[in-house]
Computed example of a mutant assay.
Amino acid sequence: MNTTPAADLGGFLRSRRESLTPEAAGIEPGLTRRRVPGLRREELAELAGVSVGYYTRLEQGVSVGASDAVIDALAAALRLDPAEHQHLRTLAGPRKPTRSRSRRSRLRSSVRELIDAIPGVPAIVIDHRADVLGWNRLGHALLAGHLDVDAPDAAVRPNVARMLFLDPHHKALYRDWQAKAQVTVAALHQAAARYPADSELRQRIGGLAADSPEFARMWARRPVRTCSYYVRELDHPLVGRLTLANETLALPDDDQQLGLFYARQDSAAADGLVLLARSIVPGGSRQTRSRRENAR
C-alpha cells in the first residue's frame, strides 16, 4: 500500500474524479461512448483552469504542494463538500513535524481524573492512531468488556480500528457497523494526511489493510467525514439493545479525542446503562486483584 504524501494526494483526487459524472459536473454528454463513468483528466483540468500535464502530475503522485488557488479550483470542479475540501488542503499543504515511531501517546492525569469523575457515562479516550489511551469502567464495560480493563496501560494497547474490523466481539456490538466503520476509516485517512511522517500510524494502516479485506476496500474508497455527534445503535451482550448518543470532543493540546456515550433520561437505554453499571465487579482491574492476592 503506497501511502506517501504525494500518493495520498493523487489517490484522493483520482477517487473523486472517477466518482463525479459529467452530468453532475455540468458537462454535456458527447456523441462518443465513454469508457469510464467519471470525468476524464482533461475535463477536470479544464474545469479547474489548470493544464492537463500539471493535473496529471498531481494525480500520478509526481507533484505535491499545489497552491491554495489550485486546490480551491480543483475542489470546486470536483464538487467537494467542506470536509473533503479541507482534507484536500491538508494533503497538499506543508508537512507536519515528524512524530517519532517510538513516541507513545500519553493520557494526561487530568483527563484520567475527568473520565473517572463521570462514572455514569461511558467514556473512552483515543489518539490519532485510534489507540485506546484510557476508558472509565463503564466505557470499558460498554465497548470492550471481554478485554482486560487495564489493557490501555499494556505494552500493546487496544486499537479501536483493529477491534472494529478484526475483533468479532466488538464488531458485533454495532448494529450500524458500516457507518461506524466508514467514520473510523475516514478518521485514519485524515490523521495520515495531518502526519504523513508518522511511521507508526502508517504501520497501523498497512497492517490492518493486510489483515482485513473489508478495511482495505473501504480505505481504497478514501472516505472523508467530519462529524462529532452520532446516534449509535448497539447490541450489548449483557444488557441488549441500546440507543446512545455518541459525542466526540477534541482534547486541547493533544491530538486525542474523548468519546462519550449517553442515553436520554427515562429511556430504555438509560435503564440499560444502569444495569450495565451494576454488572461491574467491584475492584475489578487485574492489577488491583494481583496486588490483593500478593498481599495475602
Score class of each variant (00 low, 15 high):
Arg157His: 02
Arg89Val: 08
Pro152Phe: 01
Arg175Glu: 15
Glu84Met: 01
Val160Met: 07
Asp127Met: 01
Gly120Met: 11
Gln190Asp: 04
His146Lys: 09
Val121Leu: 10
Leu164Arg: 12
Ser67Arg: 04
Ala181His: 06
Asp116Phe: 07
Val70Cys: 00
Val132Lys: 02
Val70Glu: 02
Asn136Ser: 01
Leu147Asp: 10
Ser105Ile: 12
Asp68Ala: 15
Glu113Trp: 10
Asp153Ser: 09
Ser105Pro: 14
Ser102Ile: 09
Ala172Gln: 13
Val149Gly: 12
Asn136Leu: 04
Leu147Cys: 05
Val125Asn: 13
Pro152Lys: 01
Ala181Asn: 01
Ala186Leu: 09
Leu133Phe: 07
Lys180Ala: 14
Ala77Tyr: 03
Leu138His: 02
Trp177Val: 14
Met163Asn: 03
Leu107Asp: 03
Pro152Val: 01
Glu113Asn: 11
Ser109His: 11
Asp148Lys: 03
Arg194Glu: 11
Arg162Ser: 10
Ala73Pro: 08
Arg103His: 14
Ala76Pro: 05
Val125Pro: 12
Lys96Ala: 08
Ser105Asp: 15
Arg112Ser: 13
Arg89Gly: 07
Ala181Glu: 04
Ala144His: 06
Gly134Asp: 05
Ala73Thr: 03
Leu138Ala: 10
Asp81Pro: 09
Ser63Phe: 04
Trp135Gln: 08
Gly120Glu: 14
Val64Ser: 11
Leu78Met: 13
Asp176Asn: 14
Val149Ala: 15
Glu84Phe: 08
Gly145His: 08
Asp81Glu: 12
Leu173Asp: 05
Arg112Thr: 13
Ala76Glu: 12
Asp72Ala: 13
Ala187Arg: 13
Val111His: 11
Leu138Glu: 07
Val183His: 15
Arg175Asp: 15
Ala130Thr: 04
Arg103Phe: 09
Asp72Arg: 04
Arg103Asp: 08
Pro94Phe: 03
Val111Arg: 07
His87Gln: 07
Ile118Arg: 10
Tyr174Leu: 11
Leu188Ile: 04
Pro82Asp: 02
Asp150Arg: 06
